[in-house]
């Protein structure tokens, strides 16, 4: 006598699972990571990445254990957070600071709010910001990779652009060309953000695999370029430098912390572009990508409320105040 399984329909399923999605994000991050490792002379960036990933996974495991909840490291989301965190750090950062970053990302931002899908802010972005305000010197200790020579300390392209020619001469650096910025050649910055080309490649991969929607990245980059152009700046320089591509393709598309609907994603991207522009143009920080994404994360629930999808054939409910 067979015991038959009885369950509600549907009985069919699609085989894209959470861990598969996370694996695709990991694959998409690899080109940018590879460029970063190569540029910053391999060993140090690899160890830094390993420290971030291991501590993120470990914190996730311990956290779930203490909270007596099912173990979730198998979904690979902690690995993604670890990778993103590493890519948001300067390669010179002391390892113990990276571990603090992992703690902030996984324990404070993710697990204390309920774990995967429940956090309101992007874990890696928040960790970067916390580290930046806690250890401002270490977090802005940029090295300029000189191929074939020793790396030297220097400034990021965004800082360089704001300098006068006298200042540039003093530090012995010049404003990088577009192609250097695009490929990540010989410029300062975080481990994973220097090569716009590699990030773009990963982003296109995710779009083709239908993991992310191009709406937020396009509006983010587009609005930043447009605003820069209108105010007489150099739009190409602005979008190719700093964390714009990393933020636009990998953080502004995070499922948990950005709106679900297409309309919401567009608003989110526009907001990121505008805030980044404002911070870069008028703020005291040279870079505004992290803050813009975090601020838009906070606004996400409100954007969602305003951009709910319209139900086919639904009658408008009578307005009910309160």
């Amino acid at each position: 006598m067979n015991k038959l399984i009885v369950s509600p329909s549907p009985h069919d399923e699609n085989y894209t699972k959470t861990s598969g999605i996370m694996l695709n994000v990991i694959i998409a991050l690899l080109p940018a990571l590879a460029v970063g490792c190569y540029m910053f002379s391999v060993v140090r960036p690899l160890i830094l990445t390993a420290v971030c990933v291991t501590s993120c996974v470990l914190f996730e495991y311990i956290c779930r254990k203490i909270m007596k909840r099912p173990n979730t490291i198998g979904d690979l989301s902690a690995v993604v957070t670890g990778l993103l965190l590493a890519m948001n750090l300067p390669v010179t950062l002391p390892y113990w600071m990276a571990v603090i970053g992992a703690f902030i990302a996984i324990v404070v931002v993710k697990q204390l709010f309920g774990g995967l899908g429940q956090n309101f802010a992007n874990p890696a972005i928040t960790a970067r910001i916390v580290l930046m305000v806690s250890f401002p010197a270490a977090m802005t200790d940029w090295v300029i990779p000189k191929i074939g020579r020793d790396a030297v300390s220097g400034a990021t392209p965004l800082a360089l652009e704001k300098m006068s020619s006298a200042e540039l001469q003093e530090i012995g650096q010049s404003v990088p060309s577009y192609s250097d910025l695009f490929f990540g050649w010989d410029i300062g910055g975080c481990l994973g953000e220097i090569s716009a080309a590699a990030l773009l490649l990963g982003g296109i991969y995710l779009i083709i695999r239908k993991i992310i929607s191009p709406a937020a990245p396009l509006t983010f980059i587009g609005s930043l370029a447009l605003l820069t152009f209108i105010t007489g700046g150099d739009p190409l320089y602005q979008i190719l430098s700093g964390g714009v591509f990393l933020g636009a393709f990998f953080m502004a598309t995070d499922y948990a912390t950005t709106p679900i609907t297409a309309k919401g994603k567009i608003i989110f991207g526009l907001g990121c572009g505008i805030i980044t522009f404002v911070i870069r143009q008028f703020g005291s920080y040279p870079e505004g990508v992290s803050f813009s994404i975090l601020l838009m994360n906070v606004l996400t629930p409100y954007i969602e409320m305003l951009t709910r999808s319209k139900v086919f054939g639904a009658k408008e409910a009578a307005k009910n105040e309160g």
Binding site: I21, L116, T261
Partner: peptide, 8 residues
């Protein structure tokens, strides 16, 4: 079943 990741 695992947690909703809000993928939409």
């Amino acid at each position: 079943t695992s947690a909703c990741i809000r993928c939409g």
